[in-house]
Nucleic acid binder design. Sequence first.
DNA 1: CAGAATCCAGCTCGATACTG
DNA 2: CAGTATCGAGCTGGATTCTG
Lengths: 125, 125
Amino acid sequence: MPFNNPYSSNCPTRKVLDRVGDKWAVLVLGLLGSGDTPIRFNQLRRAIEGISQKMLSQTLKSLERDGLVSRNAIATVPVTVEYAITALGKTLVTTLDALRVWAETHMEEVMASQQRYDANATSGQ
Amino acid sequence: MPFNNPYSSNCPTRKVLDRVGDKWAVLVLGLLGSGDTPIRFNQLRRAIEGISQKMLSQTLKSLERDGLVSRNAIATVPVTVEYAITALGKTLVTTLDALRVWAETHMEEVMASQQRYDANATSGQ
DNA sequence: CAGAATCCAGCTCGATACTG
DNA sequence: CAGTATCGAGCTGGATTCTG
């Protein structure tokens, strides 16, 4: 039984899927994972179009909590905070890549199916 | 640039991640993918603990629309409807399995990180 | 610069009731 | 059996304001 556990808050797979289902978390992870240099808060903010400051800080906090991202505060004035992906985070990004490949490979097939479905639904009424 | 596209509704990877972030969709897919025999609506309902009939029908509809699941209505009285995973759906389940393996492999490490994080946050106050 | 706190609009989802 | 329709509570996340 592959994906089980009912309400599943304590199912590890579900936790990862929740993380991965979170748009901002994936974008942050992808950005930090694409280079090896740390990125500052407002740099991330500018790089990820559409993210609010609240969501960015919230996302970074939970990614740090999970050990996927590391935070480094430098005592300049004003303070500088750098975020970087961890070794653990990199392994997740790698795994996520398999999903990206699936998406790109099968997108056309999915879209074709959707169009068939929608065409039938419309004509059926 | 791995995971891009800002609001990304038309990013294929994001669509897949949304699907995968949907708890019920993954459970339905996992259940249908674990065997080769089709499953009826109320069978699924009973098998997936906690799912409401609204969410099940909604989930099945969108999975069918994407071509991940097939629907077969049999004209008995009352009507019987069977759902099965498609070939496309199977490839997604397989890919999802990589994520499950990641979760199971790294769960301990993630949980350890969370405990360190929470301990610091508490003592810090 | 890097956040925390507050407020609220909007969407999700469960519960409930009804249908072919 | 296999759904659809409707209503409302609750959570999510954006906008705004403020701080060390």
